[in-house]
Write a protein that binds this DNA or RNA. Structure first.
Lengths: 80, 80
DNA sequence: TGTCCTATCATTAGTTG
DNA sequence: GCAACTAATGATAGGAC
C-alpha cells in the first residue's frame, strides 16, 4: 500500500517479514480498538507466530482475552 | 475516514452503528487475512456484540478459532 | 436495510539515519 | 534492528438508489 504493491503471499525474507508483521499488527490492533470503541463491542485477537521468529501476540491483553475466551467456551454450540 | 472524520467514541444511532460495524468488521478481517498470509501466522478474532444488536462474530471460522484457543489455553502461563 | 460509488482520510512499502 | 519520513495504495463516511 505504498511505494509499491505487495504480493499476497508469504514474505520469504525473514527480516522484512518481521518488519511487515510489526507494522501491520500495529495497524490491525488500532483498527480493532476503533471498532470496539465506535460500536461498543468486546473483542480479542490472538496471533501465533511461526516458531520463535514471530512471538505470539494477544490483544488487548491476556486477562481480557481470557475473559472473552471463557465466554466463547461457555457458549452453547447452537449459538456459535 | 472519508468525506468526514468520525469521532472516536461509541456511535449512538443504532442503524449507523450497525452499518459502521459491518463495514469495519469486513475491513478488519481483510487486514487480518493479509497479515496471516504475508507473515505466515495463525490467528483468530472473536467479537462480542452488545446484546442482540450486533451479533457475535468469530473469524476466520469457529473450528479454526477453537483450535487456536485450545493452544492458547494449553500454553503455560509463563509463555503468555 | 443492503449495495454501489467516490471524495477524503488512513495505512503502509520503501527508504533514510 | 528501530523510528521517522514520504509517496502511493488502501479503507471508509456519506450519499444515491
Amino acid at each position: 500500500m505504498a511505494r509499491k504493491r505487495v504480493k499476497l503471499q508469504r514474505i520469504l525474507n525473514d527480516a522484512q517479514r518481521r518488519a511487515t508483521f510489526k507494522k501491520r499488527l500495529k495497524g490491525l490492533t488500532k483498527k480493532a480498538t476503533e471498532l470496539a470503541t465506535l460500536c461498543g463491542v468486546e473483542m480479542c485477537l490472538i496471533v501465533y507466530g511461526e516458531g520463535a521468529v514471530e512471538a505470539t501476540e494477544v490483544w488487548p491483553s491476556v486477562p481480557e482475552a481470557t475473559s472473552v475466551l471463557e465466554r466463547f467456551k461457555a457458549m452453547p454450540d447452537l449459538d456459535r
